[in-house]
Design a protein around this nucleic acid. Sequence first.
DNA 1: CGCTAAGCGGACTGACCAGTCCGCTTACTG
DNA 2: CAGTAAGCGGACTGGTCAGTCCGCTTAGCG
Lengths: 167, 167
Amino acid sequence: MTATLRSDAKRNLDRLLAAASECFAEHGVDASVDEIARRAGVGHGTVFRRFPTKEALLVAVMVERVRDLTRAAEEALEDPEPGPAFERFLRRAAEVYAQNRAIVEGFERCVETEEVGALKVAVGRLVRRAQHAGAVRRDVTAEDVMDLVPAVSRHPDVVLDGLRATR
Amino acid sequence: MTATLRSDAKRNLDRLLAAASECFAEHGVDASVDEIARRAGVGHGTVFRRFPTKEALLVAVMVERVRDLTRAAEEALEDPEPGPAFERFLRRAAEVYAQNRAIVEGFERCVETEEVGALKVAVGRLVRRAQHAGAVRRDVTAEDVMDLVPAVSRHPDVVLDGLRATR
DNA sequence: CGCTAAGCGGACTGACCAGTCCGCTTACTG
DNA sequence: CAGTAAGCGGACTGGTCAGTCCGCTTAGCG
């Protein structure tokens, strides 16, 4: 996929991705390319040599965050207790959300990537397993749960209680 | 406060507010002044004759929405059943939220107005009354509840269950 | 009606931003 | 170490936006 880069180019690319990740997290998807380039210590022409548009850079960064979450979900699946594992994952996702102003809009830009597909699969398993164990109400899907992440980040007790199996 | 306006000016102001309300609802706070003016059928110079900045126009519009909600909360307070009245108000607020892309950011711009103060008072009463009646858990405040409106709009059953008194 | 101040709208400005381009620099190859 | 392609950055473009200004229009008073 990526042809071999010259060593300086590789270093700049790494810095660029790190700077973009920070800027998007701090300022949301409206963070400007200029600011990202400045923080990375490169000219902004360099940004567009690596990514055709700002959008492509955003997606590249967000896909990384999605992978982080997928990994967290898969780890939770290895926990023998379905209910607590589910809850731990949700709290983790809420933390990520709280620390990244670009998450919601960034996600929307990624919905068609295979990475988001993988996340949905992992969360789906996590949810169904918890439902099977009687820890989570039956009428919610993985998408509902991911939808509720922002609410969990601000009011975990209320939302987690609401998600528990009724009766 | 407002000096008497010439009849044409009054008509334009009314149209302007209506157009702004629609545009902000549809496109969020980033709706452009040009589009608002176009929809109102006026030149955009007219916007700035009535409001010093776009921000001021936004606040004027949002304050109206806040008043609507305050009225709804006060009506709910007249319902003899605290629990259902609280729930009905929350669903109503969620509807308003769902139909207005500017609500969240618009609210932030109004937090210091007396109108938002009045809303908080009314919702506070509604919440405490429902808590007294055992219909709502004790550990939430009016602000928590208003915070949860977006979540209610998408997942009313989960969130309302979470808000009910436990045990 | 005629006078005038209130009102009007659109041309204009300056700030900002994504994306392009090109002359200079530098890491690697042989 | 020399040649060169890969890489670089910043000037430039075109578009959008909020906010200003001024010559024209018109509501409404006397």
